[in-house]
Amino acid sequence: MAHNVLGGELEPCSMDPLTGFYRNGCCDTGGDDAGVHTVCVRLTSEFLEFSRSVGNDLSTPRPEFGFAGLKPGDQWCLCASRWSQALAAGQAPEVVLEATHARTLEWVDLDDLRRHAATR
């Protein structure tokens, strides 16, 4: 069983859009997840623009990969390093703590995550 950053059982992040490295709705991770897609975020237009500006366009549909594109309000499993980068740039989106994998704490301090906690 995977745990979240609060020590409880990892909850699903989003089934629509379907997220997670394993596309199971959870921010689960494993040895094959080099990007460590562990942070469940609630997207904002500001973050989507920031992400595009640093080379990761999450809003443009990519039908060849079965990706419809993301919009503000969607929840998504984000790479821990990208969330940390966004935090440093003052662009960090809200985090759903219950759905954020405990491995995130290898990159990000729990206090920073709590300061950006989303309400469910």
Rank of each mutant, 00 (worst) to 15 (best):
H3R: 08
H3A: 02
V5E: 00
G7A: 03
G8A: 02
G8V: 00
G8M: 01
E9W: 12
L10Y: 04
E11I: 02
E11F: 01
S14D: 09
M15F: 15
D16H: 12
P17F: 02
P17W: 01
T19R: 10
T19I: 12
G20W: 08
Y22M: 14
Y22A: 13
N24S: 10
N24L: 08
N24K: 11
N24C: 04
D28K: 06
D32K: 13
D33G: 07
D33T: 09
G35C: 14
V36H: 14
T38H: 14
V39P: 07
C40F: 11
V41I: 15
V41M: 12
V41L: 10
R42T: 12
R42C: 10
L43K: 11
L43V: 07
E46H: 12
F47D: 00
F47N: 00
L48P: 06
E49F: 03
E49C: 04
E49D: 14
F50Y: 15
F50P: 02
F50Q: 07
F50E: 03
F50M: 05
S51T: 05
R52L: 13
R52E: 07
R52S: 13
R52V: 03
G55K: 05
G55Y: 10
N56C: 12
D57K: 09
L58I: 02
L58G: 01
S59D: 08
T60Q: 11
P61M: 05
P61E: 05
P61V: 08
R62F: 11
R62Q: 11
E64W: 07
E64S: 14
F65Y: 11
G66S: 03
G66L: 08
G66K: 06
A68L: 02
A68K: 06
A68V: 00
A68D: 08
A68I: 00
L70N: 06
L70G: 11
K71N: 03
K71D: 03
P72D: 09
P72E: 13
D74L: 02
D74T: 04
D74G: 05
W76C: 11
C77W: 10
L78F: 06
L78R: 11
L78W: 04
C79K: 15
C79E: 15
S81G: 10
S81F: 14
R82G: 12
R82K: 12
W83E: 03
W83Q: 04
S84T: 10
Q85L: 13
A86S: 15
L87T: 09
L87D: 12
L87I: 05
A89C: 13
G90S: 14
A92H: 05
A92T: 06
A92R: 07
P93A: 03
P93Y: 05
E94N: 04
V96M: 04
V96F: 13
L97E: 06
E98G: 14
A99C: 03
H101T: 00
H101D: 10
A102S: 13
R103D: 11
R103V: 14
T104Y: 02
T104W: 01
L105T: 03
E106K: 07
E106F: 04
W107M: 07
L110M: 04
D111M: 04
D111F: 04
L113M: 07
R114C: 04
H116K: 07
H116D: 00
A117L: 01
A118I: 00
R120K: 05
